[in-house]
Amino acid sequence: MTLHPQVAAALASMPAPPPGPLDPAAMRAGEEAHVSPVAERLPLHAVEDRTGPTPAGDVPVRIYTPVEADSYGLLVYFHGGAFFLGSLETHDHVARSLAKETGFTVVSVGYRRAPEDAFPAGLQDCYGVVRWAAGDDSGLGWDGGTLAVAGDSSGGTFVAAVAAMAHDDGFDAITHQVLFYPSLDLDFDVDRYASLRENAVGYGLETAGLKPFNAFYLDSGADPADPLVSPIKRADLSGLPPALVVTAEHDPLRDEGELYGQRLRDAGVPATVSRYDGAGHGFVQHFSWIPEFARVFEETAMFVNEHGLGRG
């Protein structure tokens, strides 16, 4: 299937990136400039900015409560942005949609980003917030049932890494992991996956851009051979939480996400791989207003609200 025409039109209207090295501050400011005013955002019962105390320090979080209730399932969300972009603001609409569709309290994590904070700062923040959210002191009203972790792109990297860290620590409260077009192999050898060549040019995220976009993270000490950096390199995936892996047809990262889902299944972990035809990388953040793509939130809600999935 060809790229969705509305996505293609949007990409065609985008100006060429400025020449020279990437400027994190300018790129972040550009992202923030496109955030919708609060009055125009999806209304929920409550949205609150707080901090989550963790062993690495206090981490900014935004709590989304969809309806008034005595207790809730929890979904902890890690935004994408190649480990140096993205924020609570740029992904606010994603977190709101997840809260509305799942009926869970969503905790969006404002983790530390490269290059200012070196690996594993952001990952420690994400894991620490999950542990805090599940604790009695968080006051989040977790019902003790579903505790899902979800993330897009590099946030999906953190989802897989956090699930592995929790398993290795004997913290078994995480019940579901949701990865939207995740970056799971930061070794960007173009011959590693067919999608790196098939979707190299013309679909938004381009294969040639993977190295420079991830350089801030890798140069901060993140080793692509480390399974916490490239989760697909983890030798044993057994015992991890059931997974929903969402991929995009025209994404250079498509095949590593789909391989990860297969490897989870091979390890005995229930895993669903859902490819969105006509979509490119980033569609949950940028194009979920398109009806064909908006169902990603419904699919996520169905997955995390399933009971009795068991563990691999």
Rank of each mutant, 00 (worst) to 15 (best):
H167K: 13
E89Q: 10
V67T: 14
G151F: 04
H167E: 12
N214G: 10
A16T: 10
M165T: 11
E249W: 03
R131W: 04
P19K: 10
S230Y: 02
S36D: 09
P212T: 10
L184I: 07
P212Y: 06
G202R: 12
V296Q: 01
V59G: 11
H34F: 09
P242F: 02
L253W: 06
R275T: 08
F158M: 11
H91A: 11
T90Q: 06
V162H: 10
L264K: 03
A133C: 11
N199A: 07
E116D: 14
A271E: 02
E299V: 00
V38C: 04
R311C: 09
S108H: 00
G103T: 13
Y127T: 13
V59F: 08
A33K: 10
D266A: 11
H281M: 11
V159L: 06
D185N: 09
A16G: 12
E258F: 04
H176S: 12
Y111Q: 06
P66K: 01
V162T: 15
D219G: 14
Y72H: 15
A173D: 14
R112Y: 12
P60T: 12
E292W: 02
G128R: 00
L75T: 15
L264W: 02
L85C: 12
P291H: 06
P242V: 03
F78P: 13
H250F: 10
E31P: 03
P212E: 07
V229F: 02
P252T: 14
H91R: 06
F297K: 09
I290K: 02
S220I: 10
G81I: 05
F213C: 13
G73Q: 06
G128K: 01
L140T: 13
E40F: 09
V59I: 13
A8M: 05
D266N: 14
P66M: 08
S154W: 00
V229W: 00
P120G: 07
M1L: 10
T300K: 04
P291S: 01
E206M: 11
A95Q: 07
D152M: 01
A25R: 06
L44F: 03
Q262C: 07
V296F: 01
G310D: 05
A222W: 05
R234H: 15
G155C: 12
R113I: 02
R62H: 08
A161H: 02
V130K: 05
C126M: 04
D70K: 13
D187C: 04
E89V: 09
S87Y: 05
S195W: 02
G73C: 02
D226W: 01
S183C: 15
S220Q: 11
E292V: 03
D152W: 00
A121F: 09
Y77Q: 03
D92W: 03
V246Y: 00
P21K: 14
P24S: 12
A301T: 03
P66C: 09
A166N: 04
H4K: 13
P182T: 06
V67R: 15
